[in-house]
């Protein structure tokens, strides 16, 4: 197998068949029909792939739609990307806007833009600085969520350690901003070994060590070893298991 793979470049407007390529670049508006397997995908304009997209590196600076799965070692989304099935990748970084109709499986997932996932999100490390919306289970060894202007919605969280904190905690400017913003995390259930929350609304929180910080509104807390509650938090009931 020494057949050399060709590069594919679409500048202007065009469409190309899927298949195996080395580097794929879409600078204008391009459509790739069928599954695409290649080393790198670079989309600067607008691109649509009607099948699966598999690559080592994917960088989307414009806007892209993948009609099936997106699978890559590294995925960086600076623009916007919609994937209609699952996304998997070792390093997934979303600086722009990501929309996934399936689930995400990754090692290291970082969101500084906006992410919405209809299914589950699984990772070793999940760091979110922008608003996220996860329709299923968000599961990771370590989850760090910095709340900013908008509300984040996650149906279920299951993790080793979870840290939810507000971005501006003490600065006067921050406190002013707090008065107007709707920033919070809304979840049904949160389960983990170590859970530290701020500005979170949840029905049930279960963990070994649980700390409920300012701005939280929690239905029931079940804890094993430690439990702390801030004065500015409301918890309907806390039970040691």
């Amino acid at each position: 197998m020494t057949e050399e793979k060709k590069n594919l470049s679409i500048s202007g407007s065009g469409s190309a068949p899927g298949g195996c390529y080395e580097d794929v670049k879409i600078s204008g508006s391009g459509k790739i029909q069928g599954d695409l397997i290649c080393n790198s995908i670079n989309i600067n304009g607008s691109g649509r792939i009607t099948g699966d997209a598999k690559a080592s590196n994917v960088v989307i600076s414009g806007s892209a739609v993948v009609e099936k799965r997106l699978i890559a070692e590294s995925i960086i989304i600076n623009g916007s990307c919609k994937t209609e099935e699952d996304v998997s990748g070792e390093r997934i970084q979303i600086n722009g806007r990501g929309k996934v109709l399936g689930s995400i499986h990754g090692e290291n997932v970082r969101v500084s833009g906006i992410l919405s996932v209809d299914g589950d999100l699984e990772a070793e490390e999940f760091i979110a600085e922008g608003p996220v919306k996860i329709g299923g289970l968000c599961s990771a060894e370590r989850i760090d969520i910095a709340l900013s202007g908008m509300a984040s919605h996650i149906k279920e969280i299951g993790c080793g350690t979870l840290n939810v904190h507000s971005r501006f905690t003490s600065a006067l400017f921050g406190q002013l901003l707090n008065a107007f913003s709707k920033r919070k995390l809304i979840a049904d259930t949160i389960e983990g070994d170590t859970i530290v929350l701020e500005d979170t609304e949840a029905k049930v929180v279960r963990g070994n060590r649980v700390s409920i910080g300012a701005g939280c509104s929690i239905g029931r807390v079940y804890y094993k070893s430690d439990y702390k509650k801030d004065d500015k938090a409301t918890v309907q009931s806390a039970v040691k298991e």
Binding site: E122, S139, E141, C159, G160, G192, D193
Partner: peptide, 10 residues
């Protein structure tokens, strides 16, 4: 623990 259970699930 919860962490282990979710890790094994992942």
């Amino acid at each position: 623990s919860y962490g282990q259970l979710y890790r094994w699930k992942r």
